[in-house]
């Protein structure tokens, strides 16, 4: 699998890209906040305060919402939802897409044609409308949201992975390995995929951002569980008070923008770093 020296050279390359390393550090910070989360807050984050709709400044740094809850506390809780959905959905998407793409590219022939036609079919469907329809009819739930995102976004990964596997499969060293009599599935898993995975991982970062945006959009349309605080849901509440309480909309949106931007920047830096053209 991945050799240590390769991992080090990735890291070294990332350090040379300020946007990449900056966004990686920011994401690390978000992960820490998500893990520690409520533990560092002075009181239970969803405790109802004495005064609803307090503007920022004063006792509550970013103000309070319509139920008197601290906006800061809600933002911190929201990190968990956004990161969990974004990362798990991207992971699932990448695994499915990588497997489908690798099989299509490596086996070729009829299987390749059929798999790529299915991918094309899924790519044509208006993902967001279908996701909303499914969640609206089946009911909210984070697992469901993750499943829907993975179900609808694997084709892009599959196409990329297929192209990479096709490219790597033609390289000389694969022929050399094959002449040693190693079974095909082990060549695919042990040699081809590890050498084809770079751009797929970079795309995975962009999918994290996309998944966070999609989850937020669902929350904004009121399609998230009322029991869970998420940034999208906060914006849905904010919409009702747009004329009286701007802080209910401004801060959760900034949080989404910063988080998604960080993943997109990291994805771009990784793509730059891991694309075959730049490494050889």
């Amino acid at each position: 699998m991945m050799r240590r020296s390769a991992a080090w050279s990735w890291l070294a390359g990332l350090v040379q890209r300020p946007a990449g390393i900056g966004s990686a550090l920011f994401i690390l910070l978000l992960l820490v906040v998500a893990l520690l989360g409520p533990a560092v807050l002075p009181r239970h984050p969803l405790a109802l305060g004495d005064q609803p709709m307090l503007p920022p400044g004063g006792a509550y740094f970013l103000g309070t919402d319509d139920l008197g809850r601290s906006v800061v506390a809600e933002l911190i809780l929201g990190v968990r939802v956004s990161l969990a959905v974004g990362i798990v959905a991207a992971l699932a998407t990448t695994v499915v897409g990588l497997l489908v793409g690798a099989i299509a590219g490596y086996v070729g022939g009829l299987i390749d044609t059929v798999l790529m036609r299915i991918a094309e079919f899924f790519q044509v469907m208006p993902t967001f409308i279908l996701a909303v329809a499914i969640i609206a009819l089946a009911g909210p739930g984070l697992t469901r949201v993750i499943a829907v995102i993975a179900l609808l976004s694997w084709p892009q990964t599959a196409r990329l992975a297929r192209g990479e596997v096709l490219r790597v499969g033609q390289l000389d060293f694969i022929a050399a390995v094959r002449s040693l009599g190693i079974p095909e599935w082990r060549i695919l898993l042990g040699e081809v995929i590890p050498n084809a995975i770079g751009p797929v991982i970079a795309l995975g970062m962009l999918i994290v951002g996309y998944a966070i945006l999609l989850e937020a959009s669902l929350g904004y349309l009121g399609l998230s569980s009322p029991a869970i605080v998420s940034w999208g849901r906060m914006l849905s509440v904010g919409q009702r008070y747009l004329f009286s309480a701007w802080w209910l909309s401004v801060f959760p949106g900034l949080a989404i923008l910063a988080t998604v931007l960080a993943f997109n920047l990291l994805g771009d830096a990784l793509a730059d770093l891991l694309s075959p053209r730049s490494t050889t």
Binding site: G209, A216, S217, Y220, L235, V250, L257, V260, L261, D268
Partner: peptide
């Protein structure tokens, strides 16, 4: 391009409403 891909479009709308309408 980066910002367009990262910004929730409905939030952009909300901010515009707060600034230009409210």
């Amino acid at each position: 391009s980066l910002i367009g891909y990262s910004i929730p479009v409905f939030w952009l709308g909300q901010i515009l409403v707060v600034i230009f309408a409210v």
